[in-house]
């Protein structure tokens, strides 16, 4: 067993973990942060995506011992007061059906927009390639992420206008 200190959603958590255990296990079963989902457990589906020092990782493959002294953001910590622009856009554009992939999808999208604030549709699809959704067909998700990027650019946190904006490619 090995002692670690992880800063999870801004709060330091001291734990003693089995060195081979995954960050996903620690988040869900030790810290009871069950917003992070286990899908395939092998790094393909992206349902378990969390941010470690701001970068998206598959928490099912990420060793908990490697999160020692790092910042971990889960879906529970993404909104600070108000919903994150990506979350708001997902709500308003109905970018989910069953919702199982949504926490990972939202975190991947938030990380993408942090790295690339003005993505085009192709960038969004590439940025979300590691997150599988078996319900939506992705159209509404891609549209929501593009709209979130516009709203972040405008500094606008108000509800989206009642319009069915087409997906626009941007330079």
């Amino acid at each position: 067993m090995h002692p670690i200190v992880i800063r999870v959603n801004g709060a330091e958590r001291a734990l003693v973990v089995d060195p081979s255990v995954s960050l996903l296990h620690v988040l869900r079963d030790e810290l009871r942060l069950t917003g992070t989902k286990e899908g395939c457990g092998t790094g393909y589906c992206g349902a378990c995506t969390v941010l470690v020092d701001g970068a998206p990782v598959n928490s099912c493959l990420f060793f908990a011992v490697d999160a020692d002294r790092k910042d971990v953001t889960t879906i529970e910590g993404l909104s600070r007061g108000a919903l994150h622009a990506v979350q708001q856009a997902f709500v308003e554009r109905s970018a989910l059906q069953c919702g199982f992939c949504t926490p990972g999808m939202v975190l991947s999208a938030a990380a993408l927009l942090a790295e690339r604030p003005h993505p085009n549709e192709e960038d969004v699809r590439a940025g979300l390639a590691g997150n599988l959704c078996r319900c939506t067909g992705y159209q509404s998700i891609v549209r929501a992420v593009l709209e979130a990027s516009e709203r972040i650019a405008e500094g606008d946190q108000a509800p989206l206008a009642e319009r069915d904006a087409p997906i626009r490619a941007r330079a």
Binding site: G46, P56, N58, F62, S108, G130, N131
Partner: peptide, 9 residues
């Protein structure tokens, strides 16, 4: 290589 999450690791 892989997807963004995997490339991080």
């Amino acid at each position: 290589v892989g997807a963004r999450q995997l490339r991080t690791m």
